[in-house]
């Protein structure tokens, strides 16, 4: 699941919002919030409405198409946000086993990124310890990214300490 934010322009008369909500329900989306931006009324008198929806990534394109087919202007919809984040710990020779390729294992997936890393290396030649924060486009993707990271780390003899739950 991913969270997507749509900005649509609705005419200021009854029944307009339903044209957006019905397709959302059709594609099994879950509406998280709806904000009417009355202060940003357009020259033609329409009101921009910002809607956040939790929905299967695969359905986003069809949803937008369907809303447009109702005659509603979809002003924008954002890229799928990285919605799932977790921290994992790495212990071992993290730097000297080419840190870049370790991080690449996650980044190259295309759906997950290493967004933060904190490394402690108190002694030369001794194993270092790092906390890596990974974000992905959804929980399942996060698990796949984590599996890729584990594979690479196993080859490099780096111990991976995973969180108790993928998302707390």
């Amino acid at each position: 699941m991913a969270v997507v934010t749509l900005v649509v322009e609705l005419k200021d008369k009854p029944g307009q919002l339903a044209k957006v909500i019905e397709p959302v329900s059709k594609y099994r989306g879950n509406i998280i919030s709806i904000v009417h931006k009355r202060e940003k009324r357009t020259p033609t008198g329409s009101i921009p409405v910002e809607i956040s929806i939790e929905i299967d990534e695969k359905s986003i394109g069809k949803l937008v198409e369907n809303i447009r087919s109702q005659g509603v202007v979809v002003k924008s919809y954002n890229e799928v946000r990285l919605t799932s984040t977790t921290s994992v710990m790495l212990i071992g020779h993290i730097i000297h086993t080419d840190l870049a390729t370790t991080i690449d294992a996650v980044d190259r997936t295309g759906f997950a990124e290493v967004v933060e890393m904190h490394i402690s290396m108190p002694y030369l030649e001794k194993p270092s310890t790092a906390m890596m924060t990974i974000s992905a486009t959804g929980e399942k993707k996060l698990k796949v990214a984590l599996d890729r990271l584990k594979e690479v780390c196993m080859k490099k003899k780096i111990t991976v300490i995973e969180p108790l739950e993928l998302e707390e």
Partner: peptide, 22 residues
């Protein structure tokens, strides 16, 4: 199976900063 013999003292320091222990 993976045991606890590889865990460094720094591991706890870094984990605690993020609100975790091991």
């Amino acid at each position: 199976i993976e045991g606890i013999t590889e865990i460094t003292p720094e591991a706890f320091e870094i984990a605690l900063e993020k609100g975790y222990t091991i």
